[in-house]
Design a binder for these strands. Sequence first.
DNA 1: TGTCCACTGGAAGGGAGGGCTT
DNA 2: AAGCCCTCCCTTCCAGTGGACA
Length: 412
Amino acid sequence: MDGNIFEKILGQDSLFIDRKAFEHAFEPSNLPHREQEVDALVRNLVDALNGHIPSNMLLYGVPGSGKTVVTRFVLSQLLEKGNEMGHPVQTYEINCRNVDTKYRVVQTLASQLKQNGDYLIPFTGWPTDRVLETLIERMDRAGGVHILVLDEIDNLVAKAGSDLLYSLTNMNTLLKNARCCIIGISNDLNFTQELDPRVSSRLSQEDVVFHPYGAQEIQDILQERVKMGLKINSLEIGVIPLCSALAAQEHGDARRALDLLRISVQKAEQRSQQKVDPKHVRLAQSQLEHDQVTPVLRTLPLHQKLVLFCVIINEENGLRNISTGEIFRTYSEACMKINIEALTPRRISTLLNELDTLGLIMARNVSKGRGGRSKQVNSAIPKGIDSIKTLSENEPLIQEASQGKYMLQGRL
DNA sequence: TGTCCACTGGAAGGGAGGGCTT
DNA sequence: AAGCCCTCCCTTCCAGTGGACA
């Protein structure tokens, strides 16, 4: 072979000028169509600079509607101004999807305030109250205004209840030398209904709703990023509208649009083409679907995989709208075949709900009169993904069960 | 109109596994 | 080592239920 294998690709002209412009973590200096929301945050948070405590806020909106990016943008400006004016402001951002228990949230916050000589708080072990006390001590020591951003806060409430939020919203009464303010970010508009009323009144002193972006608005966002990130004239007409339209279908998710565009450009580059055309967008769309689903499939726990596997097997045999009972029977049989103990029907019901939340199945409750009440389940995995193969990877038991799928088919 | 099916989903709690404190 | 605390996964128990059917 001539030359180094990297040379060919390295030497290739890229259509990107700055790939970062399309990354999720990118923080643009201009946020089109979010002026009102920025304004709402600024009007509230300005209190931190006046020596007052800003109201707690709740930001609502579908994924990719700019909640996090707007918050980060405003907070970075606030930090800057705070430093300039000599009003110390501390900000914390916690994603409650990853950090989803009372203990862990408090531990994460307190750890961020750790200084030399402070205890290292273990990730489990201490009584939560003690961690909370430590947090309050450290906040007081740091002084100033502390702004806690709890992203995907609905997740936290679903798993850990209102207890933590009660403690957090109560902190101002315990702090002597510092003040704190909470910004909750939620994808779910109805989540305050699950909160303790005392908590919800304290937490949602100010609500800001982020409406989903429309196709036209997404186009504007893309245009902006294209200016920064791509060479001039690298897109065929129609690429941006197509990306926007596809993303608008996905509940107006701007992140999705950026991903689509970024991958489309990569697809064109891989084919050594000078311009991105709508064909590349279609390719990107199917890759995105694939990339979203397969890691989820791979990392499901064994029983979760088995349940999903049973849904798929049934579907491959032409059955739609499968009931919980049917799934449970297929599942029990599969467990028997691979010689593991089956979980209870109650547990399977929960697992089905979880699969539904993950978007891997569509489950709806229906009543068939005397036939009883049950779920109707269908797979929601995009076509073109070999789900059984993916489920079987590194999972010999599933492989074994899938080899017996014709036996399973027999009883259906 | 009431019955009754096949579940649903809440509540409580067990127990294993991680870790800390005394 | 014994006694806690916290989380995760799971079971057991059970009241509740939408709607076809007698």
